[in-house]
Computed example of a mutant assay.
Amino acid sequence: MIIKKSDFVTSAVTKRQYPEDKRTEIAFLGRSNVGKSSLINALTNRKKLAKVSSTPGRTRLINFFLINDDFHLVDLPGYGYAKVSKTEKARWGKIIEEYLISSTTLKRVVLLVDSRHKPSADDVMMYEWINYNNYDVVVIATKSDKISKREKAMNEKVIKDTLNLKPEHRLIFFSAVKKDGREEIVDLLFEDLASK
């Protein structure tokens, strides 16, 4: 699929602020600073569609982006950032949970993990939650330009084993710097969603 058009639609905190047009949605989940915004920008070939920050924890709202006037990408707040209060973490958690539970048009969840590290307890919990709720899931290991081929092979096994990744769920390594994996991700995520 070719992404010809991508636009920011709205930011939301509660269900009543979500878009009401009932377009199919793909949600992006991951720890703070794992590279959700960078991935969305790379997929859409837009440098500043999603705001990228060097400071973790900046995405505190749910951001909706319209792709090809056809479906939405949904950028959810990052989780697991240590330098915010427990109250703030709980608030972010509620924002994420409300969206995942209440969205009637969510088709697929993209879980981002850092390719350099073993998935965190939060990553494992999120993957298990996605499975429990029977969402189609794709796991993307970001920042792959920062590891060697040997490390990639080792880390792939660690990621799969730690998450207990199901055979039918894909794991793709991605570099926002080199755009490695972009075409594969676009085809995998969007091909069956695009209008014919």
Score class of each variant (00 low, 15 high):
M125P: 00
P77Q: 01
L171Q: 07
I101D: 15
T14D: 15
R46G: 03
D161R: 10
N63A: 00
T55S: 10
K4A: 06
L76P: 04
F28W: 12
P167W: 13
E184H: 07
T55N: 06
V110L: 06
I130F: 08
A42C: 13
N164Q: 14
E151Y: 00
K36W: 15
L106G: 05
L106M: 08
K166R: 15
K47W: 13
T87N: 05
E183P: 00
A141S: 01
N133L: 03
D114Y: 07
V186P: 02
T162L: 01
D145G: 02
T104K: 14
I40S: 04
L193K: 05
V84Q: 10
D136T: 12
I130E: 13
A27F: 10
L163F: 07
F65V: 11
T44M: 02
K160Q: 14
N63S: 06
W129N: 10
K48I: 07
L112A: 03
F190L: 14
D75N: 08
A141I: 05
N164T: 09
F65I: 12
D145T: 05
K48N: 15
D69C: 02
I159C: 01
K146S: 13
E20N: 07
H117V: 09
S54M: 05
S115F: 11
Y99K: 03
A176Y: 11
Q17R: 03
K152V: 01
R16V: 02
F173I: 01
L171H: 08
L171F: 06
R108S: 08
M126W: 14
G35V: 05
M125F: 14
D114E: 10
P167F: 08
L165R: 01
D123W: 08
L171G: 01
D123Y: 08
S144W: 09
L61A: 00
Y79R: 05
K47E: 15
E25Y: 11
V124G: 02
I3G: 00
N131V: 01
P167C: 02
V124Q: 10
S38L: 04
S115P: 04
D123V: 02
R170M: 14
D69L: 04
I67E: 09
N155R: 10
P77F: 05
L73W: 15
M125A: 13
N63E: 10
L193F: 13
V109Q: 09
K107D: 14
K160H: 06
R108D: 09
R58I: 12
R46W: 12
F8S: 07
I172T: 03
K178C: 00
T59V: 01
S148W: 14
D145Y: 08
L171K: 04
G35L: 07
G80R: 03
F65A: 08
S11L: 09
D192H: 07
I159L: 04
K48A: 10
R58N: 14
M1Q: 13
N155E: 13
I40V: 09
E88S: 11
D69S: 09
L73P: 04
